[in-house]
Nucleic acid binder design. Structure first.
Lengths: 136, 136
DNA sequence: GATACAATCTGTAGCGGCTACAGATACAAG
DNA sequence: CTTGTATCTGTAGCCGCTACAGATTGTATC
């Protein structure tokens, strides 16, 4: 037996660890459906909203953009094929790996350069040197 | 003998591979000093600007924020100690490493999950599963 | 009921780091 | 002098929130 209890935005926020402002933002941009309201206009959420919001949050944590999440949610809504979901995940994985590669290049350059730094005088600071030259 | 030739924003853009709009933006936010102008109001740059802009671009490529770059430029302007520059670089390196760690967590989770995916039916897609659960 | 105080409401503006226009001038070549 | 390009200013948009202000509800206590 499901607990069909409804709750306000504050409780939803606490139970999902998503900011109240962010929840309203997700509603505005169409990620979270507009919930029913009290007579006074306060939003009333149910566990379906909570689940969806957890899904969104988790996807954000894994680096999906809101657009990608919209896509995923679209898949989940319909009768999706697991392969479609996998495809989206692998595409995103590719993105992540590119970003990692980028960052590791930066890391190496910076670490190498900083290692050559011996706190000497101004004229020959290797870091400034590196920053002053276009990359080869 | 230095070539004291002056040139327009278009040439500066080409020689530094920085967008024209971005150059003007850097001027607006105080990263690049306002150059002299022609009578008609067109900007006239010299090699000092070019060098500074290359420095900015290179720093951006290494992931420094505009604020950090302002800082670095401030150091370079004055009679900086190499140690100060190194400190800034190492602080930034720390940031980068945190980001890499974040991304690698995402990568692992996604790769692991996607690997368990066999293109089966909807009900038991492991990716959806992962996304539906708060991280533990 | 009245009252106090918390929760929520709407709407708007800001962040960083650009990018993309529109509409008006300026400059260089023929 | 005309044509065509380069540049000018100013404004608005992108993403994913976050932070207000000022008004209104909801709830607990007396």
């Amino acid at each position: 037996m499901a607990q069909n209890r409804e709750f306000g935005i504050g409780e939803l926020s606490q139970r999902t660890a998503v900011n109240i402002e962010t929840i309203r933002y997700y509603e505005r941009v169409g990620l979270l459906p507009s919930p029913p309201r009290t007579q006074g206009g306060h939003r009333l959420y149910s566990s379906a909203h909570r689940k969806r919001l957890v899904f969104i949050r988790r996807s954000r944590e894994l680096g999906f953009t809101l657009d990608e999440i919209r896509n995923l949610l679209g898949l989940v809504e319909g009768s999706y094929a697991c392969g479609d979901v996998q495809e989206a995940a692998l595409a995103h994985l590719k993105h992540i790996r590119l970003k990692i590669a980028d960052l590791r290049r930066m890391e190496r350059t910076l670490a190498d350069t900083a290692a050559r730094c011996e706190g000497g005088t101004a004229a020959d600071c290797p870091i400034i040197d590196v920053l002053s030259r276009a990359p080869g």
